[in-house]
Amino acid sequence: MGFSLGSFLRSCPGAIAQGIIYGIMAMGVIVSYRILNYSDLTVDSSLCTGGAVTATLITAGVSPVVSLMCALAAGLVAGTVTGLLHTALKIPAILSGILTQLALYSINLRIMGKPNVTLLNTELLISLRNIPRAILIGGIFALSVIAVMYLFFGTEIGCSIRATGSNEKMARAQGINTSFNKVLALSVSNGITALAGGLIAQYQGYCDINMGRGTIVIALASIIIGEAIFSRVIETSKVSFAVRLFSAVFGAGVYYLVITAVLQAGLNTSDLKLFSAAVVAVVLSLPHLKTVKKGKVRNDAKPE
């Protein structure tokens, strides 16, 4: 059962393809987590919503591309619901996401009509049956999402969304409707996530109701790994936001390579979520642990 370099290398292309698709999802999460400063748990279900819509439509004979657009639209609606729960009904951020996430579980089952839909013998846009093509198509989608998001967040409305996330009081004082912007941003975030869900369903050839559980953790891992690797470029670049988006895709690639490696090394698949959660917990706590350590050094230095 020991680690075999050969079989790891053989698994790498698949891991990269998976990383690229999940990277698209991570870019969606950047909108809520980084731009809006909002921990949105809707994504754990909206990813599956995207998959469910895509899989169901493809089985019904709709083209894979059109079905992806429908997945995107479904995600936009899901995010809007979370946004309205939070802004119009004043439900706390985390809880708004959890409520939509729970409701979507039932809705996803309704969409599929059963706990899973398989996509056998159908023409797909992206599939693990042809991994080089999957990497190419996934890459095109990822680059398109980067381009569209970069342009959107440079527009007047995009800037006002960034201001909303950065400093709500300032945003309102500058005449920005912060509630509307939050709904819009959550909608965009879940739209992108659902689009990624549609790609994932096609890639793996099925969608099941548990797809997407832990999405937020994978997204955070990808975002943080990417930021750690590209931190200098993100700080200094003129197109900092585009680099940040790219770094999340890169981070997702690294994440799936690591997962592949630990699975090869003998980690039980069912322990994977425990492993992911532990990794993200450690990474998220690093900034705090660093300051604690610094504080210690200073305290030690004082008596001398």
């Binding site: 440079g154 527009t155 007047e156 409305i157 995009g158 800037c159 006002s160 005449g175 920005i176």
Partner: peptide, 8 residues
């Protein structure tokens, strides 16, 4: 002013 899709 109205904020639209023009560059920021």
């Amino acid at each position: 002013k109205r904020r639209g899709l023009r560059w920021g």
